[in-house]
Design a protein around this nucleic acid. Structure first.
Length: 341
DNA sequence: CGTCTTTGACCTGCGC
DNA sequence: GCGCAGGTCAAAGACG
C-alpha cells in the first residue's frame, strides 16, 4: 500500500538524529540503574505557580517558541522568564485558546475550568468548549470525508491517506512535566510505553523521544528529552491521563513505590510521608544543581505538588485551575489534600 | 511470532 | 505562500 521505504537510509540534514543512547544501551543502562530509581533518578515534579520558575513551564510557550524545551525551562537563565507576564496567563491548552488572549476572556476561562484532564474518555474539554464541540463535528465530517476518500481511493498518495481538515484544530491534553536527574532517558514509571517517534530538537544536541501508552484506549503520551545544558537532567512531559491502573508492578522496595506512585494505585501507609519528603529533598537537590532558587515546601502553602494554574489575566480575575487530572496520576492524593489546606 | 525501536516521510501550526 | 519546527505515522528490523 504505502510505498516501501528504503529504511536503512543514511540520514541527512535536518532529519539527522543524534542518538544519545541506543536502544540496547538504554536497556542495559536501565537494568544497571533500576535499583537506583527512586533515589537519584527520582523525578522532580514541576508545575505551574509553585516555583518561581513555574511560568517557564507553560507549554503553550514551549509549543510556540522555537527555543528548546530546556531553554524555556530557563535552566540557563530563568530569571528573565519570570518577568514575562504573558507566561502566567496561559492555560494548559498549549495551542489555541488561551495563548492568544481572547476577546472573550470569560468564556475562555470557563473553558479551561471545565477542563477535565482526569477523564480522557470523556471530552477533555467540557461541553462548554466550542472547540470540543466543533471537534466532534469535524470528526464526523472527517469520517464522511474518509468514506469519500475511499472512492477516490488507493490512487491517492500517502499524503492523502490521512485527510484532515485544516479547520480542525488538534485538541491536546494538558501536560505535566518534571525533571529528573538520571542517566536513563526513559524512566520506568510503572506503565508500558511504546516509542513512536524521535525528533531532533532545535538548539539541542539531544533528540526528543515520543512515547505512547501501550494500553488500548489509553492515549497518554509522554515526551522525553534531555537537557542540553545539563545532560544529566531528563525532562519528561506527560500528556493526558491513564485510564487504567499501572500494568507493571516492578520490584519491591523504593522501586515499587516509585512505580505505583505513577499509577492509579497510590502508595499507602508510612511510605507516603517518606515519598513526600523524598520528592521534596530530591527536588531541592535537582533545583539546586540547576541553579534554581527553591523555598522549602514543607508548609502546605508552598506545597510542591500544587498544580494550581492561574488563568486569564493574573492582574485581573485570576482563576485557579486545579488540575487534578493528570496530577492525580502522578501525585499521591495526600499531597493534593495538603494543597487544599 | 509478538512486542518494541528505529527512522524517513508526512502532517500541522505558526511566523515572516 | 513559503519555510521551519514540532508532532505523528508506519514500514522495517531487532529482540526475546
Amino acid at each position: 500500500m504505502a510505498e516501501p521505504r528504503s529504511h536503512p537510509k543514511p540520514v541527512s540534514g535536518q532529519r539527522r538524529y543524534i542518538r544519545f543512547v541506543s536502544y540496547m544501551e538504554k536497556k542495559e543502562m536501565a537494568l544497571k540503574t533500576e535499583d537506583a530509581v527512586g533515589s537519584s533518578s527520582f523525578p522532580c515534579y514541576i508545575n505551574s505557580n509553585v516555583y518561581p520558575f513555574s511560568s517557564a513551564f507553560d507549554f503553550s510557550e514551549v509549543e510556540k517558541s522555537s527555543l528548546g524545551f530546556m531553554e524555556l525551562l530557563g535552566v540557563q537563565d530563568y530569571s528573565p522568564l519570570l518577568e514575562l507576564p504573558q507566561l502566567s496567563t496561559a492555560s494548559m491548552e498549549p495551542h489555541h485558546s488561551t495563548v492568544k488572549v481572547p476577546s472573550d476572556n470569560g468564556k475562555e476561562c470557563s473553558e479551561v475550568l471545565n477542563h477535565q484532564p482526569a477523564t480522557p474518555n470523556s471530552s477533555s474539554i467540557s461541553s462548554a468548549s466550542s472547540d470540543a464541540v466543533n471537534d466532534e463535528q469535524n470528526k464526523t465530517l472527517d469520517q464522511a470525508d474518509e468514506d469519500d476518500d475511499e472512492e477516490e481511493g488507493q490512487q491517492k498518495t500517502k499524503k492523502q491517506l490521512k485527510p484532515k481538515k485544516t479547520n480542525q484544530k488538534r485538541q491536546r491534553e494538558p501536560r505535566f512535566a518534571f525533571m529528573t536527574k538520571s542517566e536513563v532517558d526513559h524512566l520506568e514509571d510503572g506503565y508500558r510505553w511504546r516509542k513512536y517517534g524521535q525528533k531532533a530538537v532545535k538548539n539541542s544536541p539531544f533528540p526528543r523521544s515520543y512515547y505512547r501508552c501501550t494500553s488500548v484506549s489509553c492515549n497518554v503520551k509522554k515526551r522525553v528529552e534531555r537537557s542540553f545544558t545539563d545532560p544529566s537532567v531528563v525532562v519528561t512531559t506527560y500528556e493526558g491521563q491513564h485510564t487504567h491502573p499501572s500494568p507493571v508492578m516492578p520490584r519491591s522496595g523504593v522501586n515499587a513505590g516509585y512505580a505505583t506512585s505513577f499509577g492509579s494505585v497510590l502508595p499507602t501507609g508510612n511510605y507516603l510521608s517518606q515519598y513526600h519528603h523524598h520528592h521534596q529533598q530530591l527536588l531541592v537537590n535537582t533545583l539546586s544543581s540547576l541553579g534554581f532558587p527553591y523555598t522549602d515546601s514543607s508548609s502546605p502553602k508552598n506545597a510542591v505538588f500544587t498544580q494550581e494554574r492561574r488563568l486569564c489575566n493574573p492582574g485581573t480575575n485570576a482563576l485557579i485551575l486545579r488540575d487534578h487530572g493528570l496530577l492525580q496520576d502522578v501525585v499521591p492524593s495526600h499531597m493534593l489534600k495538603e494543597e487544599k489546606s
